[in-house]
Amino acid sequence: MSTAPPVVLVLASGRGERFRASGGQVHKLQALLAGKPVLQHTLDAVRASGLAWHLEDAGHPGMGDSIAAAVRATQGAGGWLVLPGDLPLIEPSALQRVAAALAQAAVVLPQHGGVRGHPVGFSNGCRDELLALSGEAGAAAIVQARKRSGQVLELVLDGPGCVTDIDTLDDLARAERWLLSPPA
């Protein structure tokens, strides 16, 4: 088991087709949210967490390819937090909690309000499986295999930032309302 800290993998390789189909004029990661691009909100939270991070934006064909490339680029890490770039409301404390929870399990699945979210945490013991990923499926098969063997920790997070992604213009408007008037 590695003693190195985990690295946040910010995935920004997707095509954002649903966002454009909903009427978006730019890629969803460049869409303005409260005057700042969606991806910049996500990166600001990652930086504020104090965790090491890697931006994977090389334009891979699928989520699995993006994850494998990011793990290859950060192989000395003690684990990985897979964070899609379209989660602009993610909180630094959520990232820190998932990273800390990796000491207890091979896979950490954050959730809020009964909905599974991100970042999904993977220990260094998942490295070979992550490196073998390709295609659209992402790491779901790894999560399921580890779940069957009791190596998954489901972590309840307080804020909705771990489940609030931007896939459509409606999602963007909802996130903006939340940012400008957060619920009490």
Rank of each mutant, 00 (worst) to 15 (best):
G161T: 04
S66K: 06
W80M: 10
L179V: 02
G14K: 00
Q96E: 11
I142G: 07
A139E: 10
R20F: 08
E56G: 07
T74E: 07
G159T: 15
H27E: 02
G16F: 07
Q40K: 03
K36L: 14
V163R: 03
V120E: 01
V163E: 00
A105Q: 08
S66N: 11
A21C: 05
A34N: 11
R127C: 12
V10N: 02
P182L: 02
A94Y: 06
V38A: 02
P119V: 07
V26P: 11
G161K: 00
C126D: 12
R20S: 12
D170H: 06
Q30Y: 09
L180I: 01
A99L: 09
H41D: 05
C126H: 05
A70G: 15
A77L: 12
V156N: 09
V8M: 05
S93V: 15
P119Y: 03
A31W: 02
A145D: 11
L33F: 06
D171N: 12
V10W: 02
A69D: 08
A106V: 10
G135Q: 06
R15E: 13
L172M: 01
S13L: 06
R148W: 09
I142H: 05
E176N: 00
W53D: 08
L172A: 01
A77W: 05
E17G: 11
V71K: 03
R47W: 07
V8Q: 02
A106T: 11
A141L: 10
V82C: 12
V46W: 10
V98W: 02
H112A: 10
G79W: 04
P160F: 01
D44I: 10
Q151I: 01
H112Y: 15
A101K: 09
G138D: 04
L83N: 06
R146K: 13
R174A: 14
L172Q: 01
V71N: 05
